[in-house]
Amino acid sequence: MTDPKPPGPAGTAPFRRHAAELDLFAGQATMPAARLVGILAIAAGLAALVNAEALSVWAIDLPLWLGPVRTGIVAATQAWADATAAAGLHTPYDAARDLFRQFQDWRPGE
């Protein structure tokens, strides 16, 4: 907070140095948006397979005024959650959750 001159677009040397330190993206690799679409689609697909229950819980919280649209989404997400659970796709998610809860509750000596 002791920069002696008001920092303008050019600014003082300390200001420019500080501005350079704040750049998170300098020299970072870029990629096409299409590739990013693919990454997000795979990530979202994986999440929807392994934790489909989150989708059905989300659907139940949809506003009632959506009427039949809401009913359809709730039914579809519930069916999807049941199908993925029957196929055992939730197992790793549940196991990770249980293991974490055990650590959370662990008291040495008890």
């Binding site: 690799a29 795979i42 990530a43 994986l46 999440a47 974490f100």
Partner: peptide, 26 residues
């Protein structure tokens, strides 16, 4: 970030998905 950028796209997607699922589970 540079290491991630060099991975094949399916591996990148799976890595992001697993990270988000782990955070959600825990």
């Amino acid at each position: 970030a540079r290491g991630f950028a060099r991975l094949p796209m399916p591996v990148q997607g799976a890595a992001v998905g697993v990270a988000i699922l782990a955070i959600d589970a825990w």
